[in-house]
Protein backbone atom coordinates (compact mmCIF):
# COMPACT_ATOMS: atom_id res chain seq x y z
CA UNK A 1 0.00 0.00 0.00
CA UNK A 2 1.10 3.52 -0.64
CA UNK A 3 2.15 5.18 2.57
CA UNK A 4 0.89 8.52 3.76
CA UNK A 5 4.36 9.96 3.71
CA UNK A 6 4.66 9.33 0.01
CA UNK A 7 4.12 12.48 -1.94
CA UNK A 8 2.17 12.47 -5.13
CA UNK A 9 5.24 13.18 -7.20
CA UNK A 10 7.20 10.08 -6.18
CA UNK A 11 4.96 7.32 -7.36
CA UNK A 12 1.50 8.63 -7.95
CA UNK A 13 -1.64 9.28 -5.91
CA UNK A 14 -1.83 7.97 -2.36
CA UNK A 15 -4.33 5.28 -3.33
CA UNK A 16 -1.93 3.79 -5.90
CA UNK A 17 -0.25 0.69 -4.44
CA UNK A 18 3.49 0.57 -5.06
CA UNK A 19 3.32 -2.65 -7.05
CA UNK A 20 1.17 -1.03 -9.72
CA UNK A 21 2.47 1.34 -12.34
CA UNK A 22 -0.68 3.32 -12.94
CA UNK A 23 -4.15 3.77 -11.42
CA UNK A 24 -5.65 2.30 -14.59
CA UNK A 25 -3.58 -0.86 -14.19
CA UNK A 26 -4.53 -1.12 -10.53
CA UNK A 27 -8.21 -0.62 -11.35
CA UNK A 28 -8.26 -3.28 -14.06
CA UNK A 29 -6.39 -5.74 -11.85
CA UNK A 30 -8.93 -5.28 -9.07
CA UNK A 31 -11.81 -5.77 -11.47
CA UNK A 32 -10.29 -8.86 -13.09
CA UNK A 33 -9.69 -10.40 -9.67
CA UNK A 34 -13.31 -9.64 -8.76
CA UNK A 35 -14.56 -11.28 -11.95
CA UNK A 36 -12.50 -14.37 -11.18
CA UNK A 37 -14.10 -14.40 -7.72
CA UNK A 38 -17.56 -13.98 -9.27
CA UNK A 39 -16.86 -16.90 -11.62
CA UNK A 40 -15.98 -18.95 -8.55
CA UNK A 41 -19.24 -17.84 -6.89
CA UNK A 42 -21.13 -18.84 -10.01
CA UNK A 43 -19.59 -22.31 -9.92
CA UNK A 44 -20.37 -22.51 -6.20
CA UNK A 45 -24.07 -21.96 -6.90
CA UNK A 46 -24.00 -24.09 -10.06
CA UNK A 47 -23.47 -27.21 -7.94
CA UNK A 48 -26.81 -26.51 -6.28
CA UNK A 49 -28.45 -25.76 -9.61
CA UNK A 50 -27.23 -29.09 -10.99
CA UNK A 51 -28.75 -30.85 -7.99
CA UNK A 52 -31.92 -28.86 -8.59
CA UNK A 53 -32.22 -29.90 -12.24
CA UNK A 54 -31.47 -33.56 -11.52
CA UNK A 55 -34.13 -33.76 -8.81
CA UNK A 56 -36.64 -31.69 -10.74
CA UNK A 57 -36.47 -34.12 -13.66
CA UNK A 58 -36.64 -37.07 -11.32
CA UNK A 59 -39.50 -35.82 -9.18
CA UNK A 60 -41.60 -33.49 -11.37
CA UNK A 61 -44.71 -33.91 -9.23
CA UNK A 62 -43.02 -33.00 -5.98
CA UNK A 63 -41.42 -29.92 -7.55
CA UNK A 64 -44.67 -28.83 -9.13
CA UNK A 65 -46.58 -29.24 -5.88
CA UNK A 66 -43.70 -27.76 -3.89
CA UNK A 67 -43.61 -24.58 -5.96
CA UNK A 68 -47.33 -24.14 -5.31
CA UNK A 69 -46.57 -24.22 -1.60
CA UNK A 70 -44.43 -21.12 -2.06
CA UNK A 71 -46.01 -17.71 -2.47
CA UNK A 72 -45.02 -16.49 -5.95
CA UNK A 73 -46.26 -13.00 -5.09
CA UNK A 74 -43.70 -12.76 -2.32
CA UNK A 75 -41.09 -14.16 -4.70
CA UNK A 76 -41.96 -11.57 -7.31
CA UNK A 77 -41.93 -8.77 -4.75
CA UNK A 78 -38.46 -9.86 -3.69
CA UNK A 79 -37.35 -10.03 -7.33
CA UNK A 80 -38.46 -6.45 -7.91
CA UNK A 81 -36.81 -5.34 -4.66
CA UNK A 82 -33.50 -6.96 -5.59
CA UNK A 83 -33.56 -5.66 -9.18
CA UNK A 84 -34.16 -2.16 -7.83
CA UNK A 85 -31.26 -2.55 -5.39
CA UNK A 86 -29.05 -3.54 -8.32
CA UNK A 87 -30.10 -0.32 -10.01
CA UNK A 88 -29.22 1.76 -6.94
CA UNK A 89 -25.86 -0.02 -6.68
CA UNK A 90 -25.15 0.78 -10.34
CA UNK A 91 -26.17 4.38 -9.66
CA UNK A 92 -23.75 4.54 -6.70
CA UNK A 93 -20.90 3.63 -9.06
CA UNK A 94 -22.11 6.11 -11.63
CA UNK A 95 -22.24 8.96 -9.09
CA UNK A 96 -18.82 7.98 -7.73
CA UNK A 97 -17.34 8.22 -11.21
CA UNK A 98 -18.80 11.70 -11.49
CA UNK A 99 -17.40 12.69 -8.10
CA UNK A 100 -20.69 13.08 -6.23
CA UNK A 101 -20.02 11.41 -2.85
CA UNK A 102 -23.25 12.61 -1.22
CA UNK A 103 -25.36 10.89 -3.85
CA UNK A 104 -23.12 7.83 -3.59
CA UNK A 105 -23.94 7.72 0.11
CA UNK A 106 -27.68 7.92 -0.53
CA UNK A 107 -27.54 5.22 -3.19
CA UNK A 108 -25.62 2.94 -0.82
CA UNK A 109 -28.18 3.53 1.93
CA UNK A 110 -31.04 2.80 -0.48
CA UNK A 111 -29.30 -0.41 -1.55
CA UNK A 112 -28.88 -1.49 2.08
CA UNK A 113 -32.54 -0.68 2.86
CA UNK A 114 -33.76 -2.66 -0.15
CA UNK A 115 -31.55 -5.57 0.90
CA UNK A 116 -33.08 -5.38 4.37
CA UNK A 117 -36.54 -5.37 2.79
CA UNK A 118 -35.61 -8.50 0.87
CA UNK A 119 -34.56 -10.22 4.08
CA UNK A 120 -37.77 -9.18 5.86
CA UNK A 121 -39.87 -10.77 3.11
CA UNK A 122 -37.67 -13.88 3.28
CA UNK A 123 -38.12 -13.97 7.05
CA UNK A 124 -41.89 -14.11 6.70
CA UNK A 125 -41.64 -16.83 4.07
CA UNK A 126 -39.23 -18.97 6.05
CA UNK A 127 -41.12 -18.41 9.27
CA UNK A 128 -44.33 -19.71 7.72
CA UNK A 129 -42.58 -22.80 6.39
CA UNK A 130 -41.04 -23.54 9.76
CA UNK A 131 -44.45 -23.06 11.31
CA UNK A 132 -46.26 -25.62 9.14
CA UNK A 133 -43.37 -28.09 9.11
CA UNK A 134 -42.11 -27.67 5.54
CA UNK A 135 -38.54 -28.35 6.57
CA UNK A 136 -35.72 -29.80 4.52
CA UNK A 137 -35.07 -33.49 3.96
CA UNK A 138 -35.57 -35.76 6.93
CA UNK A 139 -37.15 -32.93 8.95
CA UNK A 140 -40.02 -32.48 6.51
CA UNK A 141 -43.05 -32.95 8.75
CA UNK A 142 -46.14 -30.94 7.83
CA UNK A 143 -48.73 -30.30 10.52
CA UNK A 144 -52.49 -30.31 9.90
CA UNK A 145 -52.32 -26.83 8.35
CA UNK A 146 -49.42 -27.96 6.16
CA UNK A 147 -51.35 -31.01 4.97
CA UNK A 148 -54.31 -28.84 3.96
CA UNK A 149 -51.89 -26.56 2.10
CA UNK A 150 -50.42 -29.58 0.32
CA UNK A 151 -53.94 -30.64 -0.66
CA UNK A 152 -54.60 -27.21 -2.16
CA UNK A 153 -51.24 -27.22 -3.94
CA UNK A 154 -51.98 -30.62 -5.48
CA UNK A 155 -55.14 -29.17 -7.03
CA UNK A 156 -53.19 -26.24 -8.47
CA UNK A 157 -50.23 -28.16 -9.83
CA UNK A 158 -50.34 -29.06 -13.51
CA UNK A 159 -48.56 -32.27 -12.70
CA UNK A 160 -50.97 -32.96 -9.88
CA UNK A 161 -52.49 -36.31 -9.17
CA UNK A 162 -50.25 -37.46 -6.37
CA UNK A 163 -48.64 -35.59 -3.56
CA UNK A 164 -45.17 -36.89 -4.19
CA UNK A 165 -43.04 -38.21 -1.42
CA UNK A 166 -40.18 -36.02 -2.58
CA UNK A 167 -41.53 -32.72 -1.30
CA UNK A 168 -38.81 -33.10 1.31
CA UNK A 169 -36.23 -32.95 -1.47
CA UNK A 170 -37.82 -29.82 -2.92
CA UNK A 171 -37.77 -28.09 0.44
CA UNK A 172 -34.22 -29.27 1.06
CA UNK A 173 -33.12 -27.50 -2.10
CA UNK A 174 -35.36 -24.53 -1.35
CA UNK A 175 -33.81 -23.91 2.04
CA UNK A 176 -30.22 -24.53 1.00
CA UNK A 177 -30.46 -22.36 -2.12
CA UNK A 178 -32.43 -19.47 -0.64
CA UNK A 179 -30.47 -19.81 2.61
CA UNK A 180 -27.07 -19.48 0.95
CA UNK A 181 -28.42 -16.68 -1.20
CA UNK A 182 -29.78 -14.96 1.90
CA UNK A 183 -26.37 -15.32 3.53
CA UNK A 184 -24.88 -13.56 0.51
CA UNK A 185 -27.43 -10.78 0.94
CA UNK A 186 -26.50 -10.36 4.62
CA UNK A 187 -22.76 -10.31 3.82
CA UNK A 188 -23.47 -7.82 1.04
CA UNK A 189 -25.32 -5.56 3.47
CA UNK A 190 -22.26 -5.59 5.74
CA UNK A 191 -19.89 -4.72 2.90
CA UNK A 192 -22.21 -1.98 1.63
CA UNK A 193 -22.33 -0.47 5.11
CA UNK A 194 -18.53 -0.55 5.33
CA UNK A 195 -18.26 1.12 1.91
CA UNK A 196 -20.78 3.75 3.05
CA UNK A 197 -18.53 4.56 6.02
CA UNK A 198 -15.47 4.86 3.78
CA UNK A 199 -17.40 7.05 1.37
CA UNK A 200 -18.57 9.19 4.29
CA UNK A 201 -14.93 9.61 5.34
CA UNK A 202 -14.21 11.02 1.91
CA UNK A 203 -11.93 8.21 0.74
CA UNK A 204 -13.35 8.11 -2.77
CA UNK A 205 -13.27 10.53 -5.66
CA UNK A 206 -13.80 10.63 -9.41
CA UNK A 207 -10.19 9.39 -9.60
CA UNK A 208 -10.56 6.49 -7.20
CA UNK A 209 -13.77 4.55 -6.56
CA UNK A 210 -12.56 0.95 -7.00
CA UNK A 211 -14.05 -0.42 -3.73
CA UNK A 212 -17.47 0.96 -4.64
CA UNK A 213 -17.36 -0.68 -8.06
CA UNK A 214 -16.09 -4.00 -6.67
CA UNK A 215 -18.85 -4.02 -4.05
CA UNK A 216 -21.44 -3.22 -6.72
CA UNK A 217 -20.16 -6.15 -8.81
CA UNK A 218 -20.68 -8.46 -5.83
CA UNK A 219 -24.15 -7.07 -5.28
CA UNK A 220 -25.09 -7.62 -8.93
CA UNK A 221 -24.04 -11.26 -8.59
CA UNK A 222 -26.41 -11.65 -5.63
CA UNK A 223 -29.09 -10.23 -7.92
CA UNK A 224 -28.11 -12.60 -10.76
CA UNK A 225 -28.47 -15.68 -8.56
CA UNK A 226 -31.95 -14.58 -7.48
CA UNK A 227 -32.95 -13.96 -11.10
CA UNK A 228 -32.62 -17.73 -11.58
CA UNK A 229 -33.88 -18.80 -8.17
CA UNK A 230 -37.20 -16.99 -8.52
CA UNK A 231 -38.64 -18.84 -11.55
CA UNK A 232 -36.90 -22.11 -10.67
CA UNK A 233 -38.39 -22.32 -7.19
CA UNK A 234 -41.60 -20.29 -7.29
CA UNK A 235 -42.82 -20.73 -10.86
CA UNK A 236 -42.97 -24.42 -11.65
CA UNK A 237 -46.02 -25.33 -13.71
Amino acid sequence: MATDTQTAGEHGPAYLAHHFDTPAQQFDTAKLAMWVFLAQEMLFFSGLFVAYVVFRFWYPTAFSVGSHLLDWKMGMLNTLILLTSSFTAAQAVSYAQRGMPKRVGWMLILTILLAAGFMVVKYFEWNHKFHVGFLPGAHFKPDAEGMVAIGDAVKLAFHGGGIGYHLRTFFGLYFVMTGLHGLHVLIGMGILAWIWVRNHRGEFSSEYWTPIEITALYWHLVDLVWIFLFPFLYLID
Binding site: V53, W58, P60, T61
Partner: peptide, 19 residues
Protein backbone atom coordinates in the same frame (compact mmCIF):
# COMPACT_ATOMS: atom_id res chain seq x y z
CA UNK B 1 -24.80 -29.82 -16.29
CA UNK B 2 -24.29 -31.73 -19.54
CA UNK B 3 -22.31 -34.56 -18.06
CA UNK B 4 -24.57 -35.01 -15.03
CA UNK B 5 -27.87 -34.86 -16.92
CA UNK B 6 -26.55 -37.19 -19.60
CA UNK B 7 -26.52 -39.76 -16.83
CA UNK B 8 -29.33 -38.87 -14.47
CA UNK B 9 -31.94 -37.93 -17.04
CA UNK B 10 -31.73 -41.30 -18.78
CA UNK B 11 -32.69 -43.61 -15.99
CA UNK B 12 -36.06 -44.93 -17.01
CA UNK B 13 -39.48 -43.33 -17.24
CA UNK B 14 -40.98 -41.16 -14.54
CA UNK B 15 -44.30 -42.17 -13.08
CA UNK B 16 -46.52 -39.09 -13.37
CA UNK B 17 -48.21 -39.74 -10.04
CA UNK B 18 -45.43 -40.92 -7.82
CA UNK B 19 -42.51 -39.29 -9.64
Amino acid sequence: FGYTLNDTDHRGEANPFSS
